[in-house]
Design a binder for these strands. Sequence first.
DNA 1: CATGAATGAGAGTTCATTCAT
DNA 2: GATGAATGAACTCTCATTCAT
Lengths: 194, 194, 194, 194
Amino acid sequence: MGNKSIQKKNYIIEKANHVFVKKGFRSVTMKDIVEACDISRGGLYLYFDSTESIFRAVLEAESAKVDPGLARKLSDKPTNNDILTLFFYEQKKAILERRGSLLVAMYEYSFEQHENKEKTLLSNQMDASVKFLEDILKKGTEAGEFSVDDHRLMAQNIVYTLEGMKLMSRTSFLNEEDVNNQLVLIMKSILPKN
Amino acid sequence: MGNKSIQKKNYIIEKANHVFVKKGFRSVTMKDIVEACDISRGGLYLYFDSTESIFRAVLEAESAKVDPGLARKLSDKPTNNDILTLFFYEQKKAILERRGSLLVAMYEYSFEQHENKEKTLLSNQMDASVKFLEDILKKGTEAGEFSVDDHRLMAQNIVYTLEGMKLMSRTSFLNEEDVNNQLVLIMKSILPKN
Amino acid sequence: MGNKSIQKKNYIIEKANHVFVKKGFRSVTMKDIVEACDISRGGLYLYFDSTESIFRAVLEAESAKVDPGLARKLSDKPTNNDILTLFFYEQKKAILERRGSLLVAMYEYSFEQHENKEKTLLSNQMDASVKFLEDILKKGTEAGEFSVDDHRLMAQNIVYTLEGMKLMSRTSFLNEEDVNNQLVLIMKSILPKN
Amino acid sequence: MGNKSIQKKNYIIEKANHVFVKKGFRSVTMKDIVEACDISRGGLYLYFDSTESIFRAVLEAESAKVDPGLARKLSDKPTNNDILTLFFYEQKKAILERRGSLLVAMYEYSFEQHENKEKTLLSNQMDASVKFLEDILKKGTEAGEFSVDDHRLMAQNIVYTLEGMKLMSRTSFLNEEDVNNQLVLIMKSILPKN
DNA sequence: CATGAATGAGAGTTCATTCAT
DNA sequence: GATGAATGAACTCTCATTCAT
């Protein structure tokens, strides 16, 4: 695939992203993508052969976008508390972000995959979050910033709670205050009591 | 609608239930239902005009089934702790129950509803859970069984965590031990410290 | 399938027959059949799910048509020579019949099947012809009507020659006289010399 | 067309040959050829504008290949019997050769051409065979090697039989012994009786 | 000459929905 | 009420063919 086609592929991924944000995963058709990209039916098939392959490419592109942002916001020698705070800040954004979020599409996609006994992307993402938090909590506790007994258990608890809120905000109505309050509650259970 | 018709309608609802359990919501077609019920295409339309109306009926029937079970299991004078324990027991079942659950269908349906700015069934269900827990926590704290400051906040936290686990078990792999550990963690944060 | 649909199915088979006669097998599309039958796209799929299944049904219907005709033309006590003559007469018709013949479609279909290592319909038909001829030649030789050493070998030879002529008439130009001459040549090699 | 172009054209013809051998004629697409040749889509169109034109070129190239082989195998002063034997040997190879044969493609192509009232290549080939055999039989009979009355009729009969066997071997299962037996039977009907 | 991206026509297939019986 | 045949819109996917580079 030439240079030019890589550009086109990225263009399709970008346009498709909007479609998945708007319609979720299951109800998106090749026709939807074709129309969003304003290309020919056959043209799309030069790059992707199913909505699923497009969606995977969209997620990949998305994950490439996310990481750099996180790092830049941190000071040179961040405390574990700093890192956790930033993590919560990002999560809060993900929870409340209604427009532009691929979350619903990702849930729908994961439901399908899970039926087929495959390891879902969502699952990988959550595992990564648990590992990340576990590590922070451990280091933070050792440094006296936090006071957590079972790091893994608490990490899981936090991830479940965050995921629950994400789900809530897509099926119910969740406001920023509620999210803030929950994050404070979590912080309280982590910080040393005295 | 005659007596016979009501029977038929219930028969359809029961059969459709299995279909939604198996296939979620979005991918279920009128044809699926027709085949599951072994009735005529036109026949189904006498009772329901879309998969959505069938699904709503299925959920309604489901909610009618659930409640009585809960009450019966409680002793005459249950403590708030008893009630909470029973609630957790039921939730645990809902989290781990892979076959026979309408959860995925309900998520898919709620995503669609929420897009249309409608109040989702899931939302109502979660609100009810929060209220229920809030009430128990309040009474329990007053009775000295629990020690919770902000009843509403903690109730929400519990609901989010539970919902997060439900989601996890449909997109990832969650075992009973993990659930138990989480429930223990929640109980610890509720029970009086000393 | 109700009474009415059997009629419709037969109607489709009849119309499809013309299509296969005209276009062979490979280039016939579901659309061709739909248009020949003047029914809806979806309508056809109620009865058949591929051109192949239609073609098989056409062949089946065709073979049901053929047999009765043969029997009726024979006298009460036909000699083996009578039977053979009738057989040749039918074969001559099949060779020369340009309009209305499914032969080309059958060849095309058989080529495909044979690629897939399946026993082809054509193959079965030819086997049946060989067996039939072998039997006639044997009885005829015993009755002194014919003088054939190796019945099976001669039966095969006749079948190959006939098939060769059929093929010729679809790829080249074969006139009735040529066919007659060949049949006379075959008869000469069968009849007793003296 | 330059020297280089002719080389490329021959390269395409050679690769296309394999494709036609494998898939027959009708189901071969320009895409198949492009992929087999590993050239660009547009590139193919510089040399050929349809699968039909490619196939014709393939057949032409094929016929150029065949003849020299035949001649070389003959002794200086071959008898007519020698020539006929060699002819039968080549035919036997053509009948039994399953891989590498263009026969099915040629049949499919000829069916199409014949529909359009064109003189088919197959037809020309068979005419040539008849003429060739007629000549041999005539000369052989004159030389006392054979004993054939109507040379043309017998030549046709042989060609039909051979063609019938070729067809059989592509739609049914034909073994070498059967072919040998048929050839012996033919020889018997040609050789002088005494 | 050669490339390969792009097009659009057209085939296959499925489904919600209607309607005569 | 109940049936199930029939419709036609919508979707997926593939190919021959063109054309800017």
